[in-house]
Write a protein that binds this DNA or RNA. Structure first.
Length: 543
DNA sequence: GACGCTCTAA
């Protein structure tokens, strides 16, 4: 008996050994391993070896190499390699499009997809999820609908990945009704599809409906997982609805599930966003007590709490945790640290962190530009802003322009206003938001150009809100223009919702200090408060 | 030889 088992094991080993011994197989395994672990250097060495041996152009290796470079964030390399191979078959298109979509390069994913179709390659069930994801992130509902037709025509709706991606696309585009229709039309309801729909409901603010949906599906025999509950937890944490949050956690326990690092991070993040800093710190501590390791997301969620109350000691403590966890180099953590140190008045430390790091994303740049601007180092802020545009490695976003406008506002640099506004819209295709207009009104108002500011408000592409009028009112009172002040005050009286009185007061204080990001934050809270029907209850133990 | 979906981060 024992001998027999051994013999079987030996023979299987032998077969494994034989197949492992095929050189081609070894290369494939190595490439896959390098790809999985993101080992670029060794991957490059193997690539060189394959080139020397005339194997790199073999279609099979070419696909693996494209995947390797894509996974190691070398997308231009991946693309170059792709272009070198004539008559690329559909598999390599899929690898490339998938890599772009996974890395968040949705524009590139879409454009390669169009290229693929122009070359006469028909979309299949493998490529559609990537493209649908890109549509969702871009709010490109039109293309999404066309893809839906392609799915129906080719009966891809039988593939669970395609269906989930389709529901996700409709959800992200805010078409929850369509997402529901697809979901209820599916015979074998997939858990990921349910989660995509739940996420859509939460993002549309119909959080209670999302819970009902989960309960309904439980009745039908589906077993929600931790992702389902985390989606709901995020929804109720952000809307500050503690009572329902507790219900959700109870539901979760009913299914034998425990809060994981994502659940805790959502709760902490919700508390911080609702300015409940002390509770956020308590929750963070409780999370550590129950033995959950904070992730980079947890650290970057809690750090703004230190920043808003300028609690440098606590900020340093969290910095310590990040170092202990080995995640202080994460680009989001680093950005949050820069922001925290700057807001706590420790600009030198913020600068030190910023200039020491090579990996900077938009958030990192924004944090440092805001840091300079808020400390009155306006020329440094503008210089850094210009450097960011010159380097062209990172694209500015709407906040980058708010930071730059804030710097101009503090320095009274009215002359840059128009060129900045033009640059933002024409070169970077960023639509001006209310915060930008409030910033511009503030800038003009501070310089005493009240008529110009009023002109700007009257010609705005969107309806001015109380922050825009508030900025004008502030400037009018500063310069003693009572006629215009009366106009602004009248508009404000009409716009000011009674229920949000204290928040509005707070936001106008921020507006006075040109803290436009905080203004936007308070605005979000006001918006959420309107959604909330149940009054808040005291914090209930979650663990 | 492929491939893809859902939750946390200023």
């Amino acid at each position: 008996m024992v001998i027999g088992t051994k013999a079987i094991r030996l023979s299987t080993n032998f077969i494994a050994y034989r197949s492992y011994c095929s050189t081609s197989d070894i290369y494939t395994r190595l490439l896959e391993s390098y790809t999985q672990n993101g080992v670029l250097q060794s991957g490059k060495a193997l690539h060189a070896h394959l080139i020397i041996n005339g194997l790199a152009k073999r279609t099979h290796f070419a696909s693996k190499l494209i995947a390797l470079y894509a996974e190691c964030k070398q997308l231009s390399h991946a693309r170059k390699l792709f272009d070198k191979i004539p008559n690329s078959d559909i598999r390599r298109w899929i690898v490339l499009i998938g890599a772009y979509a996974r890395r968040g390069f949705y524009e590139e994913a879409m454009s390669v997809f169009s290229e693929m179709q122009r070359k006469g390659k028909k979309p299949n069930k493998f490529v559609l999820p990537s493209v649908l994801k890109a549509c969702g992130r871009f709010n490109d509902f039109r293309t999404g609908e066309i893809l839906h037709c392609v799915i129906l025509k080719n009966e891809f709706e039988l593939d669970s990945y395609v269906v989930s991606a389709l529901i996700d696309m409709y959800s992200k585009c805010g078409k929850v009704e369509m997402a529901k229709r697809v979901f209820y039309g599916t015979v074998d309801k997939d858990l990921v599809a349910l989660n995509a729909l739940v996420s859509g409901c939460v993002q549309q603010g119909i959080v209670k409906e999302a819970v009902d949906l989960v309960v309904e599906m439980k009745v039908h025999g589906m077993k929600p997982n931790v992702v389902t509950y985390n989606t709901l937890i995020a929804g109720f944490s952000q809307t500050n609805d503690r009572a329902t949050l507790c219900d959700v956690i109870e539901l979760m326990h009913d299914d034998g599930l425990e809060l994981d690092v994502v659940s805790w991070t959502s709760i902490v993040s919700g508390l911080v966003q609702n300015f409940r800093n002390e509770e956020a710190f308590d929750t963070f501590k409780r999370m550590l007590d129950v033995g959950i390791c904070p992730s980079a997301a947890t650290i970057s969620s809690i750090l703004p709490a230190c920043a808003t109350v300028a609690d440098l000691m606590r900020g340093k403590e969290i910095h310590g945790y990040a170092v202990a966890m080995g995640i202080e180099k994460d680009v989001y953590v680093k950005s949050a640290l820069i922001d925290m140190y700057a807001k706590c008045g420790f600009l030198s430390e913020a600068k030190h962190l910023f200039y020491k790091t090579c990996e900077r994303n938009t958030v990192t740049w924004n944090s440092m530009i805001f840091g300079y601007a808020n400390h009155g180092y306006c020329s440094e802020a503008i210089e850094l802003f210009n450097q960011m545009l010159r380097e062209e490695k990172t694209k500015p976003d709407h906040l980058t322009f708010i930071a730059a406008l804030t710097a101009c506002s503090h320095a009274g640099l009215v002359q840059y206003r128009e060129s900045l506004f033009k640059l933002m819209q024409e070169k970077y295709a960023i639509k001006p938001r209310l915060e930008h207009f409030a910033c511009m009104v503030d800038l003009l108002g501070k310089a005493g150009k009240l008529d110009e500011a009023y002109d700007l408000i009257q010609n705005m592409s969107i309806e001015p809100d109380l922050f825009v009028w508030g900025a004008l009112l502030g400037a009018c009172s500063q310069h003693g223009n009572m006629d215009l002040a009366a106009v602004a005050a009248e508009k404000l009286a009409k716009l000011e919702p009674e229920s949000a009185g204290s928040s509005v007061l707070l936001s106008s204080l921020y507006a006075d200090a040109s803290k436009w990001v905080n203004v936007a934050k308070v605005k979000r809270v006001i918006k959420k408060k309107k959604l909330k029907k149940v009054p808040g209850c005291s914090w209930v133990e979650v663990a």
